[in-house]
């Protein structure tokens, strides 16, 4: 081996460890830029620990000095939100250590889109339902807000498009909101009232009163009200007398009563049993007989706990236009 002490480039430093007589470990220092990068990450980490949640200890963790503020509802002792005189939940400013949930709240309240939403909310606040629906701009807003609210609160029963459910069992059916018939009334005030307080619909079972021939005749008469093809006029005529019992709620000529939620029997819309879809008169008769026999209960929960009055207003505009006028 030639030794050339002036030629440093041919030499490599070793750690001084030797194995098997000639195996040596090179000591190649790390590139300087790499080392500085490494020190940089250490400094970054320390700064991060000071600012943000980092180290777990005992049953908690270091919180960091950075904070996030957002508006949060005031809660009473039972943990329920406190409502102000205007029916809206009272808010207070809350400051928490930095965390992504608080950041999310903050963004939901103060991001440009949240502020734009606030602006729109303020705009529709002073408007009547009719004004909101007649103005393409505010209707556009009510649509997008209403659609989101509908998806969260109504779609589970009424379907994503408001199409409702027509089940085999009348009590598992949910009314279709996209037609133009309203069982409980379709003006805005009534829709708001029903959403706020919920609905309790109750038709008693008449199985004890009407049986056999009598029941079929009554069903024939009910179907004749909406001119269903295949109705036996003779039987319907016989059943007309029994309808006196029904007239208390459905009205003498079967046009229903929105105040108590008795459906109109003279139109083509059937919200609880699929009469329009039944293949023949016998199937239709069976459906109607079933309802008379067992009665019909339907219940919609109240939403005053879950939605603000303003949200219910927007939702009413959205639901009202699903079926058009």
């Amino acid at each position: 081996m030639s030794q050339s002490p002036e030629n440093k480039k041919g030499q490599v430093e070793t750690t001084g460890h030797v194995w098997d007589g000639d195996l040596r470990e090179y000591n190649n220092p790390l590139p300087r830029w790499w080392l500085w990068g490494f020190y940089g990450t250490i400094i970054f980490a320390v700064v991060y620990w000071i600012l943000y949640p980092a180290w777990p200890y005992a049953d908690t963790y270091t919180k960091g000095v950075s904070t996030v503020s957002f508006q949060s509802p005031v809660l009473d002792k039972a943990g329920k939100p406190v409502k102000g005189p205007d029916g809206n939940v009272e808010m207070e400013t809350k400051t928490e250590h930095w965390n992504s949930r608080a950041l999310f709240y903050q963004e939901m309240q103060s991001s440009p889109s949240a502020l734009a939403q606030k602006e729109w909310l303020a705009k529709v606040k002073g408007m009547s339902f009719e004004q909101i629906a007649a103005n393409p701009d505010t209707l556009n807003f009510a649509n997008s807000a209403g659609h989101a609210l509908f998806g969260d609160h109504c779609a589970a029963c009424h379907g994503t498009g408001g199409q409702g459910v027509l089940a085999m069992n009348a009590e598992a059916s949910y009314p279709n909101l996209t037609d133009n018939a309203w069982i409980h009334g379709g003006d805005y005030a009534k829709i708001v009232q029903d959403m706020t307080n919920g609905i309790q619909g109750n038709m008693p079972a008449f199985g004890a009163l009407f049986q056999g021939e009598k029941l079929t005749d009554l069903a024939q008469y009910v179907l004749s009200l909406s001119h269903q093809p295949g109705v036996n006029d003779e039987a319907a005529n016989r059943g007309k007398a029994s309808f006196a019992t029904c007239a208390g709620c459905h009205g003498a000529n079967g046009t229903g009563n929105q105040m108590i939620g008795a459906p109109n029997l003279t139109d083509k819309i059937w919200d609880f049993v699929d009469v329009s879809g039944a293949p023949n008169i016998d199937a239709k008769l069976k459906l109607v007989e079933g309802v008379i026999d067992h009665g019909l209960q339907h219940k919609m929960p109240k939403f005053s706990d879950r939605l603000t009055p303003e949200q219910i207003r927007l939702l009413a505009v959205y639901v009202r236009q699903l079926g058009g006028t």
Binding site: G159, G161, Q163, S276, G323
Partner: peptide
């Protein structure tokens, strides 16, 4: 066309699509 529902029967027997 909105497919939920595809069509709706209205009270006068006419059909509405959304």
């Amino acid at each position: 066309q909105i497919r939920q529902p595809l069509f709706v029967l209205m009270s006068d027997g006419s059909v509405q699509n959304n």
